Amino acid sequence: MAIYKDPKIKLITSIKERVAYKVRNSIELAYPNEQKISFLDVLENRHSTREFAPMSISDLGGFLYLSCRTRSSERGELGLVNEKRNYPSAGALHSIDVIVSDNFSSNWYIYNSRQHTLDEISVADREELQEFKESCFNILGNGKAGYLIWYVCDFERLACKYEFPETLAFRESGGLSAIQSLVSEYLNMSFCTLGANGSQYVTCLSEQSKLLGVGTAIVGGKF
C-alpha cells in the first residue's frame, strides 16, 4: 500500500507557468440562468445519479461557469499565479484542469476557466483516449449520454511550491467534484463521481509537463 508523506511548503520555490496544451479551436460557452431554489434544498436533494439524458453544450457552459471558472487572478509574492475560484485549492494554485469529452465524439477539450471557453486539444492517441472514455462510461452501464469530466493535475506546477504534493492534488479534485455535484443539483442535472483516475492516459494530452489524473465524473441531463 502506498504511503503518502504530509505535504510541506518549500523554503525555496521555483516558477512554473500553467501547462499549455496544443489547442486547435475554441467554443464560446453560455452563462447559467438563475434558478429559483434555495441552497438548503440543493444540499438536501443532492444525490449521485447513474442515468443521464442528453445535455446541450449551453447547459454544460452554465455548469462549468458556476463550478470552476476563474473569478480573479494575480501573481503572488513568490511569483506564482494565484487564482480565486468557487472551490479551495492548495496555495490558490488551482493546478487541476477540467478535461471534457462527449461520449458521442472523439474530441477532447480543456475548460478555459479565464475565457469561459472549451478549447479543443490536439491529442496524441485518440484510440487510447477513446478506450479510457468507454471504460469510464461502462462503470455505470446505463446508457452513453452525458459528458466525461476528467480532473488532471499539472503536477510540476503544484510541486514547485510543495514537497510531497500528491495528497493535495487528490484533496483538490475531491473539493472540485463536491462543488460540481452541488452545482449539478442546482441546475437540475445528473452527476456521478467515478473511481477512475486515468493517470496512465495523461501523456496523450501533453508531454511537456508531468500530469497526474486525479479523478473523473459524468454530468448530463435529467430524465
Rank of each mutant, 00 (worst) to 15 (best):
N25K: 14
N25L: 05
N25R: 11
L29R: 01
L29E: 00
L29F: 08
P32K: 05
P32S: 11
E34N: 15
Q35L: 02
Q35D: 00
K36C: 00
K36T: 07
I37Q: 08
S38I: 07
L40N: 10
D41S: 14
L43M: 13
L43N: 11
L43A: 11
E44Q: 08
E44G: 00
N45L: 07
S48Q: 07
S48F: 10
R50W: 02
E51P: 00
A53W: 08
P54M: 05
P54S: 11
M55L: 14
S58R: 10
D59M: 13
L60Y: 04
G62D: 10
F63N: 03
L64T: 01
Y65S: 02
L66C: 06
S67Y: 05
C68F: 00
C68G: 10
R69H: 13
R69N: 07
T70Q: 04
S73D: 00
E74T: 00
E74R: 04
R75Y: 09
G76P: 00
E77Q: 12
L78H: 10
L78Y: 10
L80E: 09
L80T: 02
N82R: 15
E83V: 01
E83T: 01
E83R: 04
R85I: 04
P88H: 08
A92K: 06
A92E: 05
L93W: 01
L93T: 01
S95T: 09
I96N: 11
I96H: 08
I96Y: 10
V98Q: 13
V98P: 10
V100W: 14
V100R: 07
D102W: 11
N103L: 06
F104D: 10
F104H: 14
S105K: 15
S105L: 09
S106Q: 13
N107C: 11
N107H: 14
N107K: 11
N107P: 02
N107A: 15
Y109M: 08
I110Y: 01
N112T: 06
N112A: 14
S113T: 15
H116V: 04
T117V: 08
D119V: 07
E120I: 01
S122K: 12
S122G: 03
